[in-house]
């Protein structure tokens, strides 16, 4: 890949990195202070989190503003474009590994820790002495552990809302691809239509997800406290939902940028980066649907 480039490009100095470091610190420090406060103690944690979070949003706005401006001024040569692409690809890889940690936890719990507590193979003595009435089944029968942490609960049926959400996300991957083809073909109207459709699909996914959470809490008694079933269910779907939220916001921003005419047939890395991210979120959902809801 060591191709010939006429001249190297190095961006000018920028205040955004240090601003980003400060606001990230404020958010984390505020969160730590808030969590660490004694019960009933009113610390300044929440104020600092809010400050930090607003700062993070402002930082993203400012940093992207200057990058978009430089991009529109034609400063980025193909080499810079490749660097951006590699950056996004490896960032998505790191996200894959982050979800990998939680999927790994789920697999370990389902294949080892819960069956062992139920007396299988390795856990025979623990079972006999501590938990001899525990079956080690998954789901509503035993997913909240030998002491039924969080009380009895029911699981979310996969063929209702989750199936609908699967269809929604899969179609959104199709619409974003159609929009991409439209962009390469230069059909502005079609881009706006299908990209807008993708944003709407993302938003409706989130709406149904929120609805599912409320139902789980109110009617099924499935909560974050429902033993390790609740832990894995909400942490996996929650982090995924967070990523869908980010993805939807990013798609919406790209829609506005299309409206403003920022992209050309050849030059639209911002669009592609968000599309890649969206496909990644989609694939994670398929794994969730299979391993969390169906199996």
């Amino acid at each position: 890949m060591a191709q010939q480039h006429d001249i190297y490009y190095v961006p000018s100095k920028s205040q955004w990195p240090i601003v980003a470091a400060v606001v990230m610190f404020l958010t984390m420090f505020g969160a730590a202070h808030w969590l660490n406060a004694e019960p009933g103690e009113s610390g300044f944690g929440k104020t600092v989190i809010t400050l930090g979070a607003v700062g993070v949003i402002g930082m993203f706005f400012g940093w992207f503003h200057s990058v978009i401006k430089e991009s529109l001024a034609g400063l980025y040569n193909p080499q810079v474009d490749t660097s951006f692409r590699m950056g996004m690809m490896w960032f998505i890889f790191s996200e894959v590994m982050f979800f990998g940690a939680f999927f790994g936890a789920l697999f370990y719990i389902r294949n080892f820790s819960v069956p062992w507590l139920g007396g299988e193979g390795h856990g025979v003595l623990t079972h006999q002495f501590l938990y001899d009435s525990y079956s080690g089944a998954w789901g509503a029968a035993g997913g909240n552990g030998p002491l039924h942490v969080g009380g009895p609960f029911s699981t979310v049926a996969p063929w209702g809302l989750p199936l609908l959400n699967t269809v929604i996300l899969l179609s959104s991957s199709v619409t974003v691809t159609i929009a991409h083809h439209a962009l390469r073909g230069g059909h502005r109207g079609r881009i706006l239509l299908f990209l807008g459709l993708t944003v709407l699909l993302g938003a409706s996914f989130l709406f149904f997800q929120a609805h599912e959470y409320m139902e789980a809490y109110k009617e099924l008694n499935l909560t974050l406290h429902s033993g390790v079933y609740g832990s894995t269910f909400f942490m996996l779907t929650g982090f995924h939902g967070l990523h869908v939220t980010l993805g939807t916001i990013m798609l919406a921003v790209i829609w506005l940028r299309v409206l403003k005419g920022h992209f050309s047939k050849e030059h639209h890395f911002g669009f592609e980066a968000v599309a890649w991210y969206w496909h990644f979120v989609d694939v994670v959902w398929l794994c969730l649907f299979l391993f969390v809801y169906i199996l």
Binding site: A105, N144, G145, P146, G150, L224, S231, T232
Partner: peptide, 20 residues
Amino acid sequence: MLLTDKYFGTSFFNPHGGGD
């Protein structure tokens, strides 16, 4: 997972709730 086990009541590492 440590954070949520300590502050948000998850059971990843708590055998009572099926964790390890």
